[in-house]
């Protein structure tokens, strides 16, 4: 046996692991991850694979406006999924829009996770007044609906910043609003796991050799509470994408000049009844597929990491 675990042996260990086996044998999960990876890659590679640049106004032509998808009557092979009222390619808009949606999702989940983990670890480990303080903040946070927070923050930002900066601040406002309302879930989960772990004997053993509380928290307890956190993170990724879409749909999210999937749906929605269905249907389908796939992955991960369901 090699003394140092090489990356290769880690990979083979993973391929042989029960986790991977449960993944491999669940067709729904494999399909869900394929969809997720496909959308992720497409969004990531949008600048290279998108047929048009939807933000480059100079390439837009009103002659191309409201063209149906290529298979419908009057479709144009240049625009696979048709165009909107300004002649923007819907497919390209979706690719770029997914980028924004996913960016908001990942960044807000990452931020909420970091805040939640730190607060949860500290609360659960030290208990007492520290715990009471953080948990009351958490209670207050939970009593604000995300949308309300986003509206409030958005209103404040709009009031404080000059008009020309509103659009560029939109992304930050969204991430902030989602983070502020979702970190509590991580904090509560991590806190309760930490309270169990801190009275386990391996933690005592570390205390007895004089390890400092924060060293124990991050080197001993954190690896043992990460399982449920990853499950929440996955499910919250889907939720964050949905919240972003909702906020953008309501008009407090991303501006039409830099649209996310939610913005595309809002804009497209106005044309739905005039028969221009493709502008709203394709972004909606993308959103549904992405959220569903990520949710399915989260469900699988929850079951796979739950020893009781094995």
């Amino acid at each position: 046996m090699a003394l140092e675990a090489s990356p290769q042996s880690r990979l083979t260990a993973f391929l042989k692991s029960d986790l991977f086996y449960r993944f491999r044998t669940s067709y729904v999960t494999v399909a869900a991850s394929a969809v997720t990876v496909f959308i992720l890659l497409a969004a990531l590679l949008a600048p290279w694979i998108a047929p048009h640049d939807p933000f480059d106004v100079s390439t837009l032509s009103l002659w191309d406006s409201e063209l149906p998808p290529v298979w419908a009557e009057g479709g144009d092979p240049r625009f696979l999924l048709g165009t909107d009222n300004q002649g923007r390619d819907v497919l390209s808009a979706i690719l770029y829009g997914s980028r924004i949606s996913l960016a908001v999702g990942f960044v807000s989940v990452a931020l909420a996770m970091v805040i939640g983990i730190v607060v949860g670890l500290v609360s659960g480990y030290f208990g007492g007044a520290v715990d009471a303080f953080f948990m009351r903040i958490a209670d207050v946070m939970l009593s604000f609906p995300t949308i309300l927070v986003a509206l409030l923050v958005s209103g404040i930002v709009r009031g404080a910043l000059p008009r020309e900066m509103h659009d560029s601040a939109a992304l930050i406002v969204l991430v902030f609003a989602i983070t502020v309302t979702t970190w509590v879930q991580y904090a509560r989960t991590v806190r309760s796991s930490t309270m169990v772990e801190r009275s386990r004997e391996y933690v005592y053993a570390a205390q007895l050799v004089g390890r400092k509380p924060f060293a124990i928290l991050f080197s001993h307890i954190l690896p043992n509470v990460m399982g449920p956190v990853l499950v929440i993170a996955t499910i919250n990724l889907a939720m964050a994408i949905l919240i972003e879409a909702t906020l953008s749909f309501l008009g407090v999210g991303m501006p039409p000049t830099n649209p996310s999937l939610g913005t595309l749906i809002r804009v497209g929605n106005e044309y739905l009844f005039s028969g221009v269905w493709w502008v709203v249907i394709f972004p909606s389908l993308t959103l549904v597929a992405l959220v569903l796939a990520v949710n399915l992955l989260g469900d699988w991960l929850r079951d796979a990491l739950n020893p009781k369901l094995r």
Partner: peptide, 24 residues
């Protein structure tokens, strides 16, 4: 002054390799 614990399943961090546990 050191201690040996009751539960051999709880006294070793499941995420750590044995060499790291003993080296701590």
């Amino acid at each position: 002054i050191q201690m040996i614990f009751q539960d051999p399943y709880a006294s070793l961090n499941p995420r750590w390799r044995v060499r790291d546990i003993i080296a701590e």
